[in-house]
Measured scan of single mutants.
Amino acid sequence: KKRTSIEVSVKGALESHFLKCPKPSAQEITNLADSLQLEKEVVRVWFCNRRQKEKR
């Protein structure tokens, strides 16, 4: 499966949402994916990866 490159503006939106809520619910992920026009899975994985980055 190909990697999804996320635009800078979208990254900013994801980042600001992450600061408010690092573990969004499935519903929040769906809403966020719809508003940013990304697949739910891409948003879910982004949050997962971002939480791991926070641990490092």
Rank of each mutant, 00 (worst) to 15 (best):
K2F: 14
V43P: 02
K55N: 13
V8N: 14
E28M: 08
E39D: 15
K40T: 10
C48Q: 15
A33T: 00
K2Y: 04
E54N: 04
E28A: 09
E39G: 06
R3P: 07
Q27H: 09
Q37D: 13
E7A: 09
I6R: 09
K55R: 10
V45N: 07
K1G: 11
K40Y: 09
E39Y: 01
H17E: 07
E41M: 03
P24Q: 02
S35L: 10
A26Q: 12
A26M: 11
C48F: 14
I29V: 07
S16P: 04
V8R: 13
L38D: 00
P22A: 09
K20C: 04
E15H: 03
R56E: 15
E54Q: 06
R3I: 12
C48T: 13
E39K: 06
G12H: 13
N49E: 14
V8S: 15
H17S: 12
H17L: 07
G12P: 11
K40D: 12
L19A: 12
K20F: 04
P22R: 04
V43Q: 01
L32I: 15
L32E: 02
V8D: 10
K2E: 11
N31K: 13
R51A: 09
R56V: 12
P22Y: 04
V10F: 05
F18W: 04
T4F: 09
K55Y: 11
L36K: 01
K11M: 13
L14W: 00
I6S: 10
P22T: 15
K55W: 08
E54M: 08
K2N: 09
K20Q: 14
K1S: 08
V10P: 04
C48L: 11
G12Y: 15
E54Y: 03
N49S: 09
V8F: 14
C48E: 14
G12E: 15
S35W: 06
H17M: 08
Q37C: 08
S16I: 05
R44E: 15
S5G: 13
K53Y: 05
C48H: 13
R44Y: 03
Q37Y: 05
K55H: 09
H17D: 04
K40Q: 15
Q52I: 07
A26C: 09
Q52K: 09
T4L: 10
A33N: 00
A13C: 07
I29E: 05
H17Q: 08
L14A: 02
G12W: 06
E7Q: 12
S9K: 13
V10H: 14
K2R: 10
G12I: 14
I29M: 12
V45M: 11
S35G: 07
V42F: 11
N49G: 06
A26E: 13
R3F: 09
K40C: 12
K11L: 14
L36H: 04
I29T: 01
S25V: 04
D34Y: 05
V45I: 15
E41T: 05
S35R: 15
V10Y: 08
R51P: 03
K1M: 05
R50V: 01
L36Y: 05
N31W: 10
K55V: 12
Q37T: 06
W46M: 02
E54P: 03
K40L: 09
K53E: 12
T4V: 09
T30N: 09
V42L: 10
Q27C: 07
Q27N: 15
K1I: 07
R3Y: 06
S5A: 15
E28H: 03
E15G: 00
N31P: 02
L14G: 00
E7Y: 05
V10T: 12
K23D: 15
V43H: 03
V42T: 11
L32P: 00
E41L: 03
K20H: 06
R51S: 07
V43I: 05
V45L: 12
K2S: 10
E41C: 03
R50M: 04
A33P: 01
E39S: 11
Q52L: 08
S9G: 13
E28P: 02
L14T: 02
Q52F: 07
N31G: 10
E41G: 05
V10M: 07
E15V: 02
K11T: 12
F18K: 01
K23S: 14
K1A: 10
C21D: 10
N49A: 08
L38T: 07
L19F: 05
K20G: 05
K55P: 06
A26V: 09
N49V: 08
Q52D: 14
S25G: 07
R44V: 06
V10L: 12
L14R: 03
Q27W: 07
V45W: 08
Q37H: 12
V43N: 04
Q27A: 11
L36D: 00
S5F: 07
V42K: 05
I29G: 01
I6P: 13
F18C: 00
S25C: 07
H17A: 11
R50Y: 01
L38I: 11
E7C: 13
C48P: 03
Q27L: 10
E39I: 01
E7P: 15
N31M: 12
I6V: 10
C48K: 10
E39L: 02
A33V: 00
V8H: 11
C21M: 05
T4I: 12
K55L: 13
N49R: 06
Q37K: 12
T30P: 01
S5T: 15
V42S: 09
V10D: 15
H17C: 07
K1Y: 06
Q27I: 05
S35M: 08
C21P: 02
N49F: 05
L14M: 04
S25E: 05
L36P: 00
S9E: 14
L38M: 08
L36A: 01
W46L: 03
Q52M: 07
C48S: 14
L36Q: 02
K20L: 07
L36G: 00
P24R: 01
Q37N: 12
E28G: 06
